[in-house]
Design a protein around this nucleic acid. Structure first.
Lengths: 160, 160
DNA sequence: GGGCTTTGTTATAGACGATTACAATTCCCG
DNA sequence: CGGGAATTGTAATCGTCTATAACAAAGCCC
C-alpha cells in the first residue's frame, strides 16, 4: 500500500499581543475579530495541555471522533474537520504510523475503511481528553459558571 | 532592494459541517471547540464580504491597523498579527506591489520603515471595512443586540 | 568607542490544505 | 440486469502561510 506518514512536529505559535497605544478601529466592533482573539487564547490553553504529545486541534478532534464513532470513514472524518478527503487520509496515515488508529475493512462497503482506535490509541485519547478538558476549564475560569454557559449558548447559536 | 511579492490567491475553504448522527463526546463541552466552530462561521461571512478582493483576515487586519496607525513599523505589525517579522515583511511586500501601502523612511529611526496607506489603499480599506462590518453584522443577526453585546463582553474577558 | 539590541531582509524548511486524476467499488435507473 | 454516474481512497503536485536562522545596518547604552 506504501502510505507515507507526514514527519510531524506541531508548529509553535506566536501569541497575538494586544499592543498598547494602538488604535484598533473597527476591529474591536467585529464579532469575527473578537472570536479570533478569544479562540487564540483558548488555543494557548490547548497547547499547554498537550505539551509533549504531538497533538494539534485537528488531530485531537479526529481522535475523539474516531473514539466516539468507531468505524468512521475517512470521508466523514474529512467533513467533520472541514478538510478534503486527501487530507483526512494523510492524517489517518499518521495515526496508523503512531499506532493509535487502525483501518478495518467494512462488510457493507468495500471501498471505504472503517477507522478504529487501537488499545494504545484508546488510552492516549482518554489521557488527552482529561488534560484538554482540565486546561479548557482552567482557562475559562475567568468566567463564572453562568457566564460560561451563556457563552456556550451564544456560540452555538452563532455557529448553527 | 529586490523584494519579492507573493503571487497570492486566498485559499478556498471547506466549511466545517456538523454531521448528523455522530457523537461529539467532550468536544461539545470544550469552550475551545465551540469558539472554533463559531469562528469558522464568522469567517464564512468575512469570505463572502471580501469576495473578489484578494483579501484574507490577516491582510484585512493589517490594512486596518496601518490605516488607523500611520507610520506603523513592520515589527509592530507582526506583533499585532501574531506572526514573525519575516512574515510581516512578505505581507507588506504584497501590499506595496498592489499599490495599497508605501514604506517611508522615519526621521527618528533609520532602521525601521513607517508604513502608510496610499490614496488607493485608503479607498480600498474604506470599501473593505464597510463590507466586512456589514456582513459581520448580518451574520451576527441571529443574536439580539443584547446578546451580541454580551457575547462581545464575554469574549473580551476570555481573551484578556 | 564597543558590545548588545533592534529592524529589516534573505534564504530555507516545514506544516497543512487544495486540486486533479485515477482505480475500484457501489449506486441507480432505464 | 447492465452500464453510466457517483463515491471512496489514494497518489502526485502545488500554493499558502508560517517559523527559524543568519546577516547587515542602525541605534542604544554604559
Amino acid at each position: 500500500m506504501n502510505r507515507r506518514a507526514a514527519p510531524y512536529r506541531p508548529r509553535a505559535l506566536t501569541p497575538i499581543r494586544r499592543v498598547a497605544g494602538l488604535e484598533y478601529d473597527v476591529l474591536d466592533d467585529l464579532l469575527g475579530y473578537s472570536l479570533r482573539r478569544a479562540q487564540v487564547a483558548m488555543f494557548m490553553a490547548f497547547h499547554e495541555a498537550t505539551r509533549g504529545m504531538a497533538i494539534t486541534p485537528p488531530r485531537f478532534t479526529a481522535l475523539v471522533m474516531i473514539g466516539a464513532n468507531p468505524g468512521l470513514s475517512q470521508t466523514v472524518l474529512g467533513n467533520v474537520l472541514g478538510i478534503a478527503r486527501s487530507g483526512a487520509m494523510l492524517l489517518t496515515n499518521w495515526f496508523v504510523a503512531e499506532g493509535l488508529v487502525e483501518r478495518r475493512h467494512r462488510p457493507d462497503d468495500a471501498r471505504a475503511w472503517g477507522l478504529y482506535l487501537t488499545t494504545q490509541g484508546e488510552a492516549m485519547v482518554q489521557r488527552m481528553k482529561r488534560r484538554v478538558v482540565a486546561f479548557d476549564r482552567k482557562r475559562a475560569a475567568v468566567l463564572s459558571t453562568l457566564e460560561r454557559r451563556e457563552l456556550q449558548r451564544l456560540l452555538a447559536k452563532l455557529a448553527a
